[in-house]
Design a protein around this nucleic acid. Structure first.
Length: 113
DNA sequence: GATATGACGGCTG
DNA sequence: ACAGCCGCCATAT
């Protein structure tokens, strides 16, 4: 008997914790990796509730435009940008500059790289 | 116990 | 090229 009560939210949190420092990913990329039907929507819901989990680098998750959509959910607005800049990213107008250059896709875990 | 709300993205016309 | 619609889980009140 498996007692694993892991829901979709937990799976999403696991993936978010895998994001390497200095990199970011998108809601859709995580959803695609987990094969979620509802796609990014589900990931967005999970991130909203990420405060229920201890150590989630939520600042490394942005939307597919590289925009810091969730910055307003942090303790202080601007904290998300500050953390990303501390990791070597460049943000301008709440948007990551040169976004594809810092984009990390969980699907790359399956690749040789 | 039920209702309302919440960090997105892809597809269609 | 643009605008609108749809999908669906968990948590708090």
């Amino acid at each position: 008997m498996k007692k694993s009560k892991e829901n979709h939210f937990d799976l999403i949190y696991q993936v978010v914790q895998l994001i390497p420092k200095g990199k970011v990913t998108s809601y859709g990329a995580i959803a695609n990796y987990l094969g979620l039907k509802s796609g990014a929507r589900m990931v967005g819901y999970a991130m909203n509730a990420s405060h229920t989990q201890p150590d989630i680098p939520a600042h490394r998750v942005v939307n597919r435009n590289g925009v810091l959509t969730g910055k307003h959910h942090f303790s202080n607005p601007g904290e998300m940008q500050e953390k990303l800049e501390a990791e070597g990213l460049i943000i301008e107008q709440d948007q990551i500059k040169n976004f594809p250059n810092f984009f990390w896709d969980p699907n790359d875990l399956k690749l040789d790289q």
